[in-house]
Computed example of a mutant assay.
Amino acid sequence: MEAITFPNDQITMAGNLYLPEGLDRTGRHPAVVVVHPGGGVKEQAAGLYASKLAEQGFVALAFDASYQGDSGGEPHHLEDPYARVDDVRAAVDHLQTLDFVDPERIGALGICAGGGYSVNAAMTDYRIKALTTVSAVNVGTSFRRGWYGTDADAAAVPTLQALAQQRTAEAAQDAEPTYLPYVPAEPDENTPRDLVEASDYYLTPRAQHPNAKNKFLFTKSVSRIFTFDAFHMVEDLFTQPVLVVAGSEAGSLWMSTELHGRARGPKKLRIVEGGTHMDFYDVPKYVDQAIAEATPFFTEHLAATSTDQG
């Protein structure tokens, strides 16, 4: 693994580049951009998947989102879906500058919200030749409709009203900027199982990291998140092959099945029996199954052509 930086307009991005053992740097190899969940950093699930993809022969890049982790951008702790999508494009930019990466054989793998962001990026960036989502989340839709997707979009209105009041107070300098947690610090009996497990993942030694602060700016993030739809126009613009991996017990499963149902290109849905949303972050049984699906998928769709081979 090599710690790297790369540009994203005026922001300096921080990433970890995972290379296959014994990589021939004189050749050109397939590569995968790995996109972390909301609230995550490159050292957590994204880094785990990147390392395992490297073991399978792919160059893999995990990076911190702009405004988060070790990456630049102010104000920090901003969750901006449109910036997150741009991050994916910037990561592809960087991979295409590497002499040992084939610029025509780049894919993406997104976890949780990173899955939704990856889909949205691929819709307008056809340099991404193939995409895998793992426990995919369409973050804007999830925020509006709730974790299980059972609320109407209008359920977001009270939060937006509170946001307006908070923004007014901050503009008048009567209040400091406020933050919301990505995952509940103190889950209760009403907390969805997946989010209880998310709290255990992010806030205990299981996967806790000092750069994952479990907070995002309320006013500046929510106003961007609530109007974002990662799957908007997916039927018309998303043409690449897609592998959708999710657990049968995940409360977020509805977003994976929606993506698979709406995608019009080559697609495969792999529902892993017994898996929850968070199982695919670090539980070996489930991570290994996701990699076992992703490896042949990327091998097929990022294969060198006779022209590539000269």
Rank of each mutant, 00 (worst) to 15 (best):
D93V: 06
Q56K: 14
Q56H: 10
T97Y: 05
Q68D: 09
R89P: 03
A60D: 04
K52R: 15
F58I: 00
E55Q: 15
H77I: 03
A54Q: 03
S71F: 06
L48I: 02
V88P: 14
V59L: 11
F58D: 05
G114E: 04
Y82D: 14
F100T: 02
G115P: 10
D80I: 04
D99M: 07
D70G: 12
G69N: 08
L61Y: 12
G47S: 01
I111L: 15
F63H: 06
V119K: 11
G72T: 01
Y49D: 14
P103V: 08
A62R: 03
L53P: 09
A46N: 07
P81E: 11
G73M: 04
S118G: 14
A54L: 02
H76T: 02
R89D: 09
C112R: 08
A83S: 13
I111R: 07
H77E: 10
T124I: 15
G47E: 00
L95Q: 07
A90M: 03
L48T: 03
D64Q: 01
C112Y: 08
A54V: 07
L61W: 11
L95T: 06
L53G: 02
A46F: 06
A122M: 10
D99L: 07
Q56T: 11
I106C: 01
V59W: 10
R105I: 01
D80W: 09
L78N: 01
D87N: 04
G115V: 03
A108D: 04
H77C: 08
Y67K: 06
T97R: 14
I106D: 00
V92F: 13
I111Y: 11
E104P: 02
G115I: 03
R84S: 10
V119W: 13
L61K: 05
D86Q: 14
Y49I: 09
L48Q: 09
A83T: 02
S71H: 07
F58R: 00
R84Y: 09
V101S: 12
A90K: 00
H94D: 10
A113R: 05
G69T: 00
A83N: 08
P75G: 13
D87V: 02
E79H: 04
V59P: 04
A121D: 03
D93M: 05
S66G: 15
G107M: 03
T97D: 13
P103W: 02
S66W: 12
A122T: 15
G69K: 02
R89N: 13
Y67E: 01
C112M: 08
G116F: 14
D64L: 01
H94T: 06
G69M: 01
A60P: 01
P81W: 04
G115D: 09
V85I: 11
A91W: 15
Y67A: 01
A50W: 00
A62Y: 07
P75E: 00
N120C: 15
D87S: 01
N120V: 05
G110L: 11
S51E: 14
V88I: 14
P75Q: 06
D87P: 02
L98P: 09
A46Q: 08
G114C: 03
Y117M: 11
G73W: 00
A108K: 09
V92Y: 13
G69E: 02
L78W: 08
G72F: 07
D102H: 12
E74W: 00
R84E: 11
Y49S: 08
L78S: 02
A46D: 10
H94R: 02
G57Q: 01
D64M: 00
A91T: 15
A113E: 13
L109H: 00
G114Y: 00
A50I: 14
G57K: 02
V119Q: 09
